[in-house]
């Protein structure tokens, strides 16, 4: 529980942060809220020699609507996500998800960008971003590039971030008015990562599901976008047989680890149960 030695840097611009990260190379890690990285450092599972704190960079803590997107600065805390009326109106599933992350103290420090960029399969936001079709703005020496959340995660703690790149903002296409949503998370206690969790966004018309998107948390090395399960739902009335088939399709793509949360078979089944419950809530919320 005693971290190794490291140097601490606190740049004030994205450019200087990028330059620092590039210059310091693999021994450096960007620091956002720190609530994933610092516990790893305390157990020396991570031992970066340099921490580049992004906290003093202006403009990374913001939520705004730009056209048909909502744009969230990477250093926006989970606490700010929860308290944003803009998000509550336009993408309410963000608030529902942020509220089941950790506890109020951690949400006050933890950031949405850190949650998305760290590549920890236990984090809740990545699967939600895949569900919402969000894209990440990655800033490097050559400027910005956009990468879809669905393409960003390569493995546990492995992402599309190139050396020196920083995830600076998240762009979320605003779901249609009247959409139904639900984020359902099973955890052992407050502060725990999910045993399994599911994010669901659907639209309904005349009792028929017209679109669906599903993300699954912590049941593989990466967050999972359950495209096939969602495809099965579209065009149905969300009848029992269809939902059963979608749940089976979602369960089929999971590859969870066995850990103290339970054996793999349990976590796969819980992904199914969470999906079923999230879908149930989404359906109730959807304006038909």
């Amino acid at each position: 529980m005693i971290p190794g030695t490291f140097d601490y840097h606190r740049p004030t611009t994205v450019e200087s942060a990028v330059a620092l990260l590039l210059q310091l190379g693999e021994d450096a890690r960007p620091l956002a809220g720190g609530h994933s990285l610092i516990p790893l450092m305390k157990t020396r599972l991570a031992a970066p020699e340099h921490l580049v704190d992004l906290g003093a960079i202006e403009g990374l803590h913001r939520v705004e609507r730009i056209g048909d997107d909502v744009v969230i600065g990477a250093m926006t805390t989970q606490h700010s996500v929860i308290n944003s009326s803009l998000l509550a109106d336009l993408v309410p599933i963000l608030r529902e998800t942020a509220l089941v992350i950790a506890d109020p103290q951690i949400r006050y420090k933890g950031t949405i960008g850190g949650n998305c960029a760290n590549g920890d399969p236990g984090n809740d936001m990545p699967a939600l971003m895949q569900c919402l079709g969000a894209s990440y703005t990655l800033t490097g020496t050559g400027g910005n590039r956009q990468v879809s959340a669905r393409d960003f995660y390569l493995g546990a703690y492995e992402t599309a971030l190139a050396p020196g790149e920083i995830l600076t903002e998240i762009r979320i296409p605003i779901p249609p008015t009247g959409h139904g949503y639900g984020y359902e998370k099973l955890k052992r206690k407050v502060g725990d990562y999910a045993t399994a969790a599911a994010a669901v966004v659907i639209t309904m018309a005349a009792g028929t599901c017209t679109s669906a998107s599903i993300g699954l948390t912590n049941v593989s090395e990466t967050p999972l976008w359950a495209a096939e399960a969602a495809r099965i739902l579209v065009g149905s009335t969300l009848d029992v047989a269809t939902v059963d088939a979608a749940v089976a399709a979602a369960e089929a793509i999971t590859t969870p680890a066995s850990d103290m949360r339970g054996p793999a078979e349990y976590r796969t089944k819980m992904a199914g149960v969470m999906l079923r419950r999230a879908l149930g809530r989404a359906r109730v919320r959807a304006t038909v």
Binding site: P39, D103, R188, K189, V190, G191, D192, D259, M260
Partner: peptide, 16 residues
């Protein structure tokens, strides 16, 4: 030894 940290060792909070 498995789960020898408060991540896994169940110490209930006021919520549970």
């Amino acid at each position: 030894v498995m789960g020898a940290s408060f991540m896994d060792f169940f110490l209930p909070t006021a919520v549970e």
